[in-house]
Design a binder for these strands. Structure first.
Length: 221
DNA sequence: TCCCAGGTGTCTC
DNA sequence: GAGACACATGGG
């Protein structure tokens, strides 16, 4: 078994099946993908709650909202002015190219949908891949700061690799299934939030023996 | 009070 | 093409 698959199985065993993205509807996932850029999820939750409380969580309603007003709703997520512009760009794409339904990405070839998403202002590779995987259930692995941090700790890959090189490394070492990519990314995020911040690692870390840092630097009791 | 967090676009060289 | 920088709030 390769180290990627081993890591996945160990995290899954330790944390259980997560069936995760911290949002319910596909459109909400897409909004969250923009709002979470370089921001912790707690602020994003507050911003999404503001939009839902105002009954604005639809493409058409946000499209009709003045950008200054949208920025006020999403203020807790940080970078609210730039993210308001990016949300508007994404929603213009969803309405214009996807008939208002982000899940229609699943009806086009993956490379075509990804290219179209990357052409949207404010959508980079991580945001595009989050939308493709979590909204459209397409087989693409999401590389984020947590993923880079973890592969660096475990020394199973160079965390400074370009985005697509690291993504392809994960995809080629796992069963090519969106369900696996989805669950593995979720496992990484939850693990890093809960224990991966600790340096040195805590003694009850479920992947301690895989971690070169832990074996070299000692373990925090 | 300071540091950090699930990126991306723009500008400069 | 690579690196520096701006964008901003909230929690620890």
């Amino acid at each position: 078994m390769n180290e990627f698959l081993q890591l996945y199985k160990r995290l899954l065993s330790a944390q259980g099946q997560l069936n995760w993205w911290p949002a319910t509807e596909p459109f909400e996932v897409a909004v969250g993908a923009i709002l979470t850029q370089n921001t912790s999820w707690t602020g994003v939750e507050a911003a999404i709650a503001n939009l839902k409380a105002a009954d604005l969580m639809t493409p058409a309603k946000i499209a009709d909202l003045p950008i200054e007003e949208l920025a006020r709703y999403i203020r807790p997520s940080g970078y609210f002015n730039i993210k308001a512009k990016r949300l508007k760009s994404l929603i213009k794409f969803i309405i214009g190219d996807l008939d208002g339904d982000v899940t229609n990405l699943a009806n086009m070839p993956l490379h075509h949908g990804r290219k179209a998403l990357l052409a949207v202002n404010g959508v980079g590779p991580e945001t595009a891949d989050s939308i493709l995987l979590y909204c459209a259930n397409l087989p693409i692995f999401v590389i984020d700061a947590y993923t880079r941090r973890l592969v660096g700790r475990l020394e199973i890959a160079d965390p400074t690799l370009p985005y697509d090189e690291l993504r392809i490394l994960f995809e080629s070492n796992l069963p090519y299934m969106p369900e696996i990519f989805n669950e593995f990314h979720a496992q990484i995020v939850i693990h890093c939030k809960n224990s991966c911040k600790k340096q040195p690692l805590c003694a009850n870390c479920p992947i301690l023996d895989m971690c070169a840092y832990g074996t070299r630097q000692g373990v925090k009791q």
